[in-house]
Nucleic acid binder design. Structure first.
Length: 582
DNA sequence: GCCGTTTTCGGCCCGACTGTTTTCAGTCG
């Protein structure tokens, strides 16, 4: 069975991990990681790129990787992976998820103790068998047991919304310390990743010990993982790990950049520095001598913008620092002017008590107005969604009467009549045309029959976006972060179809969804698709989730002009009823 | 395994912290 691009990339990543587990040359493993990365950043079709010779020209793809990729595309398997899998038990890969256990020790434990899985490792720890190995002591064994406990209790990742809220609270409290002169949230929260491994907080202070002490003694700290001069790590009761880094004032911009990451972005930026005879680390940007030793003081920088400028780059927003072309764009002045929260004028896709929402239409409208919105789109569930009290045609009539009355009565906010129509398995919408015609807009979403095969699932969404009544394709992958994979479909094909037909695609701002995936947003923009940032609010507080949608829109390189709901009502309305509608 | 105006061999980003070591390897970000 052949695999798609995602399959090829994950195969190369797996090979890299397996290589590390064999104890092979670590640079060989890194070569596979780099190759996977090169493919992830490659925009074209792999098959075509392979046949046309484009892949062979990619930096990081050599003769050997090309062979593996070819084999994966043609047969669905790669000789290297088959061979490695035969050598390495699958349980060893699982073991790498244990915090504090890396490939070297996983390999060693396998070799010397015959441990092949997380469960076996747990047993070996409890039998004190690790203590017999050189370099292992009581603490290591206890730490591994704790790590096993941790991955069983938590997935190891957290929603952006949860981590961000908690992090803001910690920052606010640390700020109270008189010794703190600067403080910023760094890491993947600052980059607005949709899920977060741990919270990174950076502080500039001349009282590092006191600030660190305050941090590790917060009431919700359950465990102190590490506590050094410049770095402390704790685990909170909620399971999330928080790292605090403490640096002197003049290092702050360099440290902020460094600890914001991503690792991949940092690597290419450090390489760029190196190419210029400089060394970049969290303390500064230094000139180096012939022996590669840093000399003298750091190049001065008040902020990150000056750091980038010292490397002849425009300022790169944190959201873009993923090594997905941002350096090239920063070099050539091609960085986008990103969407701002203030650009948003309202949002479609919200629910009320008419289907499965918790608040009335009026309550939702007033809450939207309080947020400064000019309009709110109401889109309760359609009739097939019986589990969510989907609306029958006569419900819709009555709901529209209520909206008309409210629109007459309310000042300063306009309620748009919409529906979140299920996309039926064949791709049709959930009402007859005469009912569909009565709405201002229609969000079409898949809510059931997730198990259709890739071809049928793709066709289903393609038909939905080709339907002239569909204004927006809602949460296009159907994923629930940390809970459920999206359904199997060819998103490139769906995006292309939406581009041709003029249908918008949603970036659903619900923190469990954040769907369309930010990685696909640039593709959608390139195809001429407008993005509708939808709140998918089921209660008034849910409207505020739009901030997560805006954050991820920025991460996906969106400018205001790429977004549907930056438009005022007069411009928006015609966009919602496309040509072809009766 | 990949790469190259320092090119076909010899590098491949950099530093903090921990645990187990008397000088360092492993892990992490």
């Amino acid at each position: 069975m052949a695999v798609d691009k995602k399959g090829v990339i994950s195969a190369l990543e797996e090979i890299a991990l397996l290589l590390e587990l064999t104890g092979a040359n670590p640079f060989k493993a890194r070569a596979f990681q780099n190759g996977a990365r090169a493919l992830a950043n490659y925009e074209g079709d792999l098959r075509a790129g392979l046949d046309g010779g484009e892949l062979a020209k990619l930096k990081g793809i050599g003769k050997s990787l090309l062979g593996e990729i070819k084999s994966l595309l043609e047969t669905g398997e790669s000789p290297a992976r088959v061979e490695l899998r035969a050598q390495i038990p699958a349980g060893l890969l699982e073991m790498l998820k244990i915090p504090g256990l890396g490939p070297k020790r996983a390999h060693e434990l396998h070799e010397k103790l015959g441990v092949e899985s997380v469960g076996e490792l747990e047993y070996a720890c409890k039998e004190n068998r690790l203590l017999k190995l050189p370099g292992y002591g009581e603490k290591t064994q206890a730490k591994l047991l704790k790590g096993i406990d941790y991955i069983r209790k938590f997935s190891g990742r957290h929603l952006l919304s949860d981590a961000w809220t908690r992090a803001d609270d910690l920052v606010e409290r640390l700020q109270q310390h008189p010794g703190v002169s600067r403080i910023e949230l760094a890491g993947s929260i600052r980059r607005r990743k949709e899920t977060i491994g741990d919270i990174d907080i950076l502080v500039a202070t001349d009282e590092p010990a006191a600030v660190s002490e305050m941090f590790v003694t917060f009431a919700e700290v359950e465990e102190i993982i590490g506590h050094g001069d410049t770095k402390s790590s704790v685990r909170l009761e909620s399971g999330i790990q928080v790292d605090l880094r403490v640096v002197p004032e003049q290092s702050f911009p360099f440290a902020l950049h460094y600890f914001t990451g991503s690792k991949e972005h940092n690597t290419v930026l450090r390489q760029r520095a190196k190419d210029r005879g400089l060394r970049l680390n969290e303390y500064g940007l230094f000139h180096v001598d012939d022996h590669g030793e840093a000399i003298g003081e750091s190049v001065a920088a008040m902020d990150e913008a000056e750091l980038f400028a010292a490397l002849d780059l425009a300022y790169i927003e944190p959201e873009l620092r993923e090594d997905r072309g941002e350096l090239l764009a920063a070099e050539s002045g091609a960085l986008p002017e990103l969407l701002q929260p203030g650009d948003i004028r309202g949002a479609l896709h919200n629910h009320s008590t008419w289907s499965d929402g918790a608040h009335s239409i009026e309550e939702m409208a007033r809450a939207a107005q309080a947020l400064g919105w000019e309009y709110i789109g109401l889109s309760d569930h359609s009739q097939t969604a019986f589990y969510a009290h989907g609306l029958k045609p006569d419900d819709i009539l009555r709901q529209h009467e209520e909206i008309d009355r409210l629109n007459e009565r309310l000042d300063g906010i306009v309620i748009l009549k919409g529906i979140e129509s299920d996309i039926l398995p064949g791709g049709a919408l959930d009402y007859d045309d005469d009912v569909l015609e009565s709405f201002d807009f229609i969000v079409a979403s898949v809510h059931g029959n997730f198990g259709l095969d890739r071809k049928k699932q793709t066709l289903r969404s393609v038909r939905a976006v080709q339907n002239p009544f569909t204004s927006v394709l809602g949460h296009p992958t159907g994923r629930l972060l940390l809970a459920r994979e999206g359904f199997d479909l060819d998103m490139d094909e769906v995006i292309a179809a939406a581009g041709e037909s003029g249908c918008a695609i949603e970036l659903n701002a619900n923190p469990h969804r954040l769907d369309l995936d930010w990685r696909d947003l640039p593709k959608a923009v390139k195809a001429g698709v407008k993005i509708s940032i939808g709140a998918d609010a089921h209660r008034t507080e849910g409207l505020k989730d739009l901030r997560y949608g805006i954050a991820l829109a920025r991460k996906g390189w969106l400018r205001a002009t790429d977004v549907l709901n930056v438009l005022g009502l007069a411009e928006l309305k015609p966009m919602l009823r496309r040509s072809g509608c009766p």
